[in-house]
Simulated assay, not measured.
Amino acid sequence: MPADPRAPASHCPELIGAEPSVAELEPVLARIGDRLARTLPAGLARLSGGDIPLVKAAPPQRASLDSLREEGEALSAYCLMNVDRDPDSLPLLAVFDAAPLFRLVDRAFGGPGDVPEPLPDTFPLSAELLLARLETGLAEALGVALSALDGHDDDGRRRVVPVRRDTSLRHLDPFPADADLLALALQVEAPDGGPWSVTLALPIATLAAITAPRRAPARHRRALPARPEQEPFASMPLEVTAVLVDMPLSMARLSGLRPGEILPVAVARSVPLRIDGRTLASGTIGEIDDRVAVQVTHAF
């Protein structure tokens, strides 16, 4: 009987290769941890005023979403990241416990590193801002560490991008519930404070894809970035706002205002110049040709 021409092709494992096992991927994650221990301190130093911390990577451990939930504190921050720029591929997870974050925030404001008792249900804005900076520094160091695996230069460097963050691992839903994970704990010892840690959890599929051979992108001439003094941006009108006075008024005082009242105000020495709510420069108030003017003293 002749073979069905529609039958799917069958390839022998020797030709297509097999996915690496968990035992083979553990040393890969260990090398990533060693690389992070060397590259992450420089990024964290920018958060601590220049003091370079010591980072140590623990041996990789097998994990699951359930084990991460059980080991986390009552309040933890779970940050989903993606390797490279495809939003649907190569996810990984960073886990930050709440207590160390509150200690870092308290020290940043000159405190001794106190932690609120009991822990709140959510992170305040100050902790959210610190989390964003920690995520950025970790993502940059991870990109360097992952690129070192296959020896690519800047043109082929892997990018790690924070995607979203949540205090509930169930709501974040980063991976399938039954996904096999490898976890890497990074212990950070700051010179002026107690130790803290961050845990990275990578699905086996992500690690397998990272270790797969990757062709270097074809080199091509890079397009020069558009300059703001050239078209089509040069003639684009933008509304610049100089904030001369920013004064708080109570609701009682505001409701009682009457024509003829005088409100004493003080013009700040440094006047911010803003576009769409973002401060781009600052300057001092002066006068030119009988008109109020701002002399720019600092541009960001």
Rank of each mutant, 00 (worst) to 15 (best):
D276S: 10
V240G: 08
R258C: 01
P124E: 05
A252I: 09
P60E: 07
S21M: 08
D121S: 12
P248G: 03
P2G: 07
R215E: 13
L130Q: 11
G113A: 00
L25M: 10
P112D: 13
L75V: 10
S147C: 03
V243Q: 09
P27D: 00
P162R: 02
L134V: 04
R31D: 09
P213T: 07
P116G: 10
M236P: 00
A18F: 08
A216D: 14
L101I: 10
R222W: 10
S197A: 12
R62G: 11
S67H: 11
V22P: 07
T279K: 05
G277I: 01
S235Q: 14
V188E: 07
L149V: 14
C79G: 03
R269P: 12
R164D: 03
K56C: 05
A209E: 12
L200I: 02
A209W: 01
L119M: 11
L36F: 01
V105W: 04
S67V: 12
D121R: 14
A208F: 09
R291P: 01
A268F: 00
H171M: 14
A185L: 13
L54S: 13
P195W: 06
G277V: 03
G260E: 04
L36Y: 07
T136V: 09
L36D: 04
S48A: 14
V292Y: 10
R103K: 12
T206P: 12
G43K: 11
L47H: 06
D173F: 13
G151I: 10
D153P: 13
P13S: 13
A201D: 07
Q230Y: 08
A201P: 10
A190D: 11
P237R: 05
L184Q: 06
G260K: 04
H298T: 13
A223M: 12
L146D: 01
S235L: 11
R227Q: 14
L138K: 02
A145I: 02
V161L: 12
D4S: 11
T284F: 00
A268N: 08
S64R: 09
A216L: 15
D88K: 10
M236W: 06
D155T: 13
A37W: 02
G283Q: 06
T297S: 13
G43F: 13
R227C: 06
Q187L: 14
S147T: 15
L273R: 06
A293Q: 04
P259A: 10
P272S: 05
V271K: 00
G113K: 04
L244Y: 02
L93P: 03
R46G: 15
L172F: 11
L254F: 12
V115R: 04
E189R: 10
M1F: 01
L101E: 04
L182S: 00
T206A: 10
L181E: 02
G113E: 03
E229P: 00
F96Y: 15
D154H: 13
P203F: 07
C12K: 08
P13M: 11
F102A: 08
L68A: 09
L131D: 04
D114N: 14
R274P: 02
P176H: 11
L68W: 04
P118D: 05
L224T: 15
A141L: 00
A223P: 08
A37R: 07
R46E: 13
S255G: 12
D4V: 02
E14M: 12
